[in-house]
Design a protein around this nucleic acid. Structure first.
Lengths: 170, 170
DNA sequence: TTGGAATGTCAACAACGCTGACATAAACTG
DNA sequence: CAGTTTATGTCAGCGTTGTTGACATTCCAA
């Protein structure tokens, strides 16, 4: 099977970081880091009737107010039925407002209410605090490398969503 | 609320990468990259009756053969009841073998069978291939930064698990 | 105007987190 | 050494969130 250790001699010292052992460490680092990444919002949400799916919806509605259900679907990469359940509770609880489209009445445009924005703030503050500490600890060059590798790890469509969101905010 | 933009003037140019906008990009990068990270194994597992939880169990049993249920629990960060359901199916399907402890008969030591090792190989090959491509695209310095930031993002206990696993393999 | 495509909603099911109750084995205590 | 406490693992049941299937509404094009 594809063994990184086998190819190192061909490629010289500069590719030693591609041994299977290094790749496995990268894989495990992703696993453990993602747990930390979601830990703080998860703790906040556990007290309410919400979960990680609600957080994601709230995050991206805040990021792109007026977005449609379909658009949100593509960003989140779940089925509309799954998203719909989450949106239903958020709307019922008054965190999200859904407005029928002006031009196309099939579409629903989504906005956070004041209450929704407040929860979004609370969640992002917690998540940003951890990210800020990690970034500060690691330093600017490490952060640049972090972002480069993450972008290279995305599927092309996700990469597009990511770039589009990035470009939409100055 | 904690606004990175507000603190930039205090800290000078070297901390500009800590603005809320940069942090949010880091957060979204984690989200999209993790989707890519799990996409390939998920595709393989979807055809079987297994999911991501089975992959994680198989991965760490392979990494530390003979580990106990309790030990696996601490690494995976789930409840033993949740892990037990996964292990039960893996044992029933002959991918994992569970042996009663010699010294302490309460413990169960876990090993992959040949069949289990085969699935592990298939899953890691897919995941490593993506990681290898990302690492190669990004280059060694970016990879170093990637690992530095991820380690800084972990909770201390996860960081310990990560280090212990890393040190256990030369 | 009618048939198909797009959008969103409702219903039911599977994977996988969780808590609670329990059996067994080990360890401690009087 | 008997009785209690602690540790480990198993079984049962529930909640969140993913899935597919069926359907209503709206738009658009033949």
């Amino acid at each position: 099977m594809a063994d990184g250790r086998m190819m190192a001699p061909h490629s010289g010292e500069s590719l030693l970081f591609l041994t299977d052992e290094h790749l496995r460490q990268g894989i495990e680092a992703m696993f453990f880091a993602y747990r930390g990444f979601t830990a703080d919002p998860d703790r906040i949400l556990a007290d309410m009737a919400y979960g990680r799916a609600h957080h994601r919806a709230i995050h991206f509605i805040n990021r792109a107010p007026g977005t449609t259900v379909n658009n949100l679907l593509n960003i989140l990469g779940v089925t509309k039925q799954s998203l719909n359940r989450v949106l239903r509770t958020l709307i019922a609880d008054g965190l999200v407002q859904s407005r029928v489209g002006r031009n196309d009445k099939r579409e629903r445009h989504l906005y956070l209410t004041d209450e929704g924005r407040a929860l979004e703030q609370e969640l992002s503050d917690a998540q940003r605090a951890r990210m800020r500490l990690a970034f500060r600890t690691a330093g600017p060059e490490a952060v640049a490398g972090f972002r480069t590798v993450l972008e290279a790890m995305m599927d092309p469509e996700m990469r597009e969503s990511f770039d589009r969101l990035r470009d939409s905010c100055p």
